[in-house]
Design a protein around this nucleic acid. Structure first.
Lengths: 265, 265
DNA sequence: TAGTGGTCTAGACCACTCT
DNA sequence: GAGTGGTCTAGACCACTAG
């Protein structure tokens, strides 16, 4: 009966909506402003609320929107460039154009036998004691990442053997000791990787986000003379972070707005 | 009337489901196997199909599952480690433990005036001609990334002035010329960044994925003597890629399974 | 043709924030 | 209490793949 065009893979409604919304918010809204609520938008576009939400989900994943329960949906600020650098413990590693005021805040410091997985990754016998420092990376007053730094006992033999410090300033001191010892080793190589993940319950809480929040999982292997001495597992908030791996001091030109260029083509 | 506990922020059903499913598939399934279909799973767990799908969405985002229309839901293979390295044009940049057989396949090569956004990012006057090479990164026979390499005309003045080559081997040659000229410049610095994004229509097609697919957007600024000479915008499939930024030749120990360690804690 | 995942709907209720 | 986003349901239909 004359089907007209060959279908041409009809674009899903939610995807079309996302595009329309993106154009709208770029043209008519600015950072921090709240857009109309979901029920109104879904009515305005003549779709079910679930469909509208699918479109908003996309834009949130792209870091263009932030949704706050009880408040509304806001235009997100551009992502913050965060250097993922060599210094193991250094508090501030500022690069021009990048985030200033980056600090680490220690959460935890425990020494415990390595799990099978962890031992494998560290290249040590299973069950060997590993010092684990958990800390948060705070940039411009906002918690951007949670990190677990694993250091096998054998790599930092000069650490005073404290049985089991937990809580208070004692734990903070313990964490500092581990970091200091690690720095003294003179790390001369590292291998970094980035992949997509989601924050689980505890991690999510540290990042002040709900479980399931997308994160960029950064794995850093620190080595001394070709021998692995530490493993850092960091999860960065994917909504607000742009990780930078600059060879500092060489180039550090204008921060590029990738989204704008990719879309503009 | 005695409310019992202080609520304790009840875990959403879909999140609990995700955890249960994750444990199940880790224990009882292996890479490539298909798990029961959505209708059966939703019945088995006593939830609506939409709720089950929310759980599967999470696991897919984590790279644990792959869903294929008309086929079923499969256990995904572990992510492939892909070096994001310095060589501008080099075909294979293999690191031990990382992906071998990495090649680039040229798609496009056009010379056109820079858009405002692109000019800004390249630090050139708007409207200056820019050579853009689009190519795909193929690893182990699978398309993993799409890249747009932008080189301002002024950076590679020795390029033969071809008016507008499109299609066929001529375009391929043109692309090679641009890459060769760029290599001859002797790039001595670069700045890289990674952030989360989604693939739009055309890009998604190149990556053989539906629109909205999560990608890792890699931005590389190439410099010669402190001057920006090229800008590469690459989008890597977030489901299958783990990007590695190793200082090659120093360490390259066992590839770490971040997920396993993060979950095992 | 049967079975799969993908999209969409209309409606309900909950958890949270602000006033 | 009013308004917001977050979760969940039950059902429908579509697009794709396979035998």
């Amino acid at each position: 009966m004359g089907q007209g065009q060959p279908a041409a893979a009809p674009e899903p409604k939610y995807w079309h909506l996302r595009t329309v919304l993106l154009r709208t918010i770029e043209a008519e809204f600015s950072t921090g402003q709240v857009i109309p609520n979901e029920r109104e938008l879904s009515a305005r576009f003549g779709v079910a609320r679930a469909t509208l939400r699918q479109a908003l989900d996309q834009l949130e994943l792209e870091g263009r929107l932030v949704r706050r329960r009880g408040i509304g949906t806001l235009i997100a600020a551009p992502r913050v460039g965060i250097p993922v650098g060599s210094p193991v413990g250094g508090p501030a590693e500022n690069g021009p154009g990048s985030a200033g005021g980056s600090t680490w805040r220690t959460v935890d410091c425990v020494s415990a036998p390595a799990s099978a997985q962890l031992a494998l990754a560290l290249g040590i016998p299973a069950g060997e004691t590993v010092h684990t420092v958990r800390r948060l990376r705070v940039v411009q007053g906002r918690t951007m990442a949670a990190e677990s730094l694993h250091v096998p006992e054998s790599a930092v033999p000069h650490l005073p053997a404290v049985p089991r410090v937990v809580g208070g300033t004692a734990e903070q001191d313990r964490a500092k000791s581990v970091l200091r010892q690690l720095e003294r080793l003179g790390v001369d190589g590292e291998s970094r990787s980035v992949e997509l993940g989601v924050a689980e319950a505890e991690e999510a809480a540290l990042l002040e986000r709900p479980p399931g929040t997308p994160v960029l999982v950064v794995t850093i292997q620190y080595a001394v003379a070709g021998r692995l001495v530490a493993l850092a597992l960091s999860t960065y908030r994917a909504d607000t972070c742009k990780l930078t791996f600059g060879e500092m001091g060489k180039v550090e030109v204008t921060p590029v707005q990738a989204g704008a260029i990719r879309t503009a083509s």
